[in-house]
Amino acid sequence: MLKIIGYVIKDLLRNRWTLFYLLFYLLVGFAILIFSGDFSKSTVSFLQIILILTPLIGTLFGVMYYYNSRDFIELLLAQPIRRRDVFIGQWLGVSVSLGTSLVLGLGIPFLWYFAQYEVAGDQFVLLLLLGFALGTIFTGLAMAVSVSTDNKIRGFGYALVLWLLMAVVYDGFLLLALIAFRDYPLEKFALIATVFNPIDLARITILLKLDISALMGYTGAVFREFLGSTTGMILASSVLILWMLLPFALITLIAKKRDF
């Protein structure tokens, strides 16, 4: 499997899109830090990129890379390699490349900024980690979708819909639900609902660092228990790690039954 991951990374290193992605992040990173005026505003902008763009780019790359390398996947399947390893290897290879682009692309502008101004780096490191996790999760989900359908267009469509659901629509429905059932105790529901969406989970994790002052103003007991301590952050990030196992399971399961 390591060889496959290594190969995919090498392959992507030559890929124009990886470079494009890296440059994009560099550009965005510098632009945000230079033009947003102050660091806390930059952090918020970075947060939006991490929450919306990394899953999207992961999704697009996951689908694209899978369909573009279907031939190669078939070649691999005929080799004495475990089926699971072929797909998981692809997934991790793409994820590591994307993640590296992200970390370099945003990390370099940040280091440049850090060298000039004294700002807290821990929030930023957390952002990068979450971006890495989200990218990996969505690349995996996109691959799981792609493996389950041969139709490229359909695969793209499903994967994008999945992203849209998670990134935007889910929160809309959650908000609607919270408004509709406002007369009921909703604390637990609200918290549990975020667990089922990795983007929300990542968002809550960073909120615990960024907006703790506001969160502490919340009245509910369960909420305070969860948000008011480091337990909250540890819990949120471990569930996020569980989320990273989901594509693993899905891909393994789907690939096991597929014919090529």
Partner: peptide, 14 residues
């Protein structure tokens, strides 16, 4: 599959 080599119909290469 260590003991089998397969040459596919359409050349499938990266």
């Amino acid at each position: 599959r260590r003991e089998i080599v397969y040459m596919p119909q359409i050349a499938l290469f990266p």
